[in-house]
Amino acid sequence: MATRVLKKVVSAAITLGLLLLGGVPASAAPPRNADPVGIDVSWPQCGKALPKEPAFAVVGVNNGLANTTNPCLATQLAWANTAPSPALTAQPRVALYVNTANPGLQGSWWPGSNRYGGVDVANPYGACRGGGSGAGDFRACSFMYGYAKAYDDATIRGIGDPEKYLWWLDVETENSWQPDKAANVADLEGMAAYFTSIHAKVGLYSTGYQWNQIAGTVSSSSPLAGLPSWLAGARSLTSAKSNCSLPALTPGSRVALTQYVSSGLDYNYSCP
């Protein structure tokens, strides 16, 4: 899935970071029926044949960047809804993931206040004044940037009833991030705050390495603490099962989902 470090072809020799998607062959063999697993897809799979009736599906909302829309979102959501009902695993039949980033003042847009979408947003970092020179002010604006991207994902990308979905925040080094990890945490907290405000569920997708590079250690008092973790990096179903025992991304969290690549397609194992 990556920015996709899940949606671009990279060398298999890369051991740090996420495994990336390649093209999805029409003849991709399904996993063993004894192990019901899900599939995640996004813009790299546009026009590709996908296996029918995955155990569950996760669809990428963006086109690789946090401020874009997956051009195949509608058709991929229709495919995702072929997942069996009732759900075969603890995962929802259909979930979404969104690209995340914190470009700061180098981005094409940067907030200048705590107001977005016609709402005055409660900002735990204080007042956003367009970045400013102080770390606190920059973190306040980072929070607003994340809030705004989540608002856009839920309201202008073509998602109906956004509150009914689990939204995974795709956190990868391939996107633009600040050296200030606290600002990056604020950005992700802003995204989580918006989705929580519409009563949607939120999870975090990354690898331990990338999470540490971007966010570092998160306080147990952060809204990110306790959110379910989805870990990438496995190369087989066996490895994905083993990764369920890895440390979660934030305090109080558990690894709920692990990803592996088979025949050029991302499969996902729901941890017990």
Score class of each variant (00 low, 15 high):
A232R: 05
L246T: 06
S245L: 09
S219E: 08
S222F: 04
S219W: 04
L231K: 01
K241C: 10
L224H: 08
A234H: 00
S236M: 08
N212A: 10
S220I: 01
G216I: 02
T238D: 14
N243F: 14
I214L: 13
P223Y: 00
G216Q: 04
L227D: 03
G208V: 09
T238P: 00
T217G: 11
P223Q: 04
A234G: 12
N243E: 09
S221F: 08
S220R: 07
G226P: 11
S236A: 10
S242Y: 12
N243T: 04
N212H: 07
A232C: 09
K241T: 07
L237K: 09
L224A: 03
G226I: 07
W211I: 01
S236E: 11
G208A: 10
S239F: 11
G208R: 14
L227C: 01
T217S: 15
S229R: 02
L227A: 01
S242M: 13
I214A: 06
V218C: 09
L227T: 04
G208W: 11
Q213H: 02
L237H: 13
N212Y: 05
N243A: 13
Q213E: 11
L246I: 05
A215V: 09
A234F: 01
S229D: 02
L224D: 06
S222E: 04
C244Q: 06
A240F: 07
W211T: 03
V218R: 03
S220P: 00
S239K: 15
N212G: 10
R235C: 06
G226K: 04
C244E: 06
L227V: 05
S229G: 07
Q210S: 11
G208H: 06
G216R: 04
W230Q: 08
S236H: 04
W211Y: 07
L246Q: 14
Q210N: 12
S245Y: 13
S236I: 13
S242P: 00
G216D: 03
A215T: 08
G216T: 02
N243R: 12
S220M: 00
S236W: 11
S219Y: 08
T238I: 04
Y209F: 15
A234Y: 03
Y209H: 11
P223R: 10
N243K: 07
S236P: 07
V218A: 09
S220K: 13
S236L: 12
W211V: 02
A234T: 00
L224R: 11
P223M: 00
C244M: 08
L237Q: 13
K241E: 13
Q210G: 00
T217A: 15
W230D: 04
K241G: 10
C244I: 04
S219Q: 05
P223T: 07
S219P: 01
A215R: 07
G226E: 01
P223E: 06
A240H: 02
L237T: 05
S222V: 03
A234Q: 05
S239T: 13
I214F: 04
Q213S: 10
P223H: 00
L227F: 05
S222G: 10
S221I: 03
G216P: 06
Q213G: 01
R235N: 15
G226D: 09
S222Y: 02
S236V: 08
T238H: 07
L227W: 00
S219F: 06
A234N: 05
L246P: 00
K241V: 11
T217V: 15
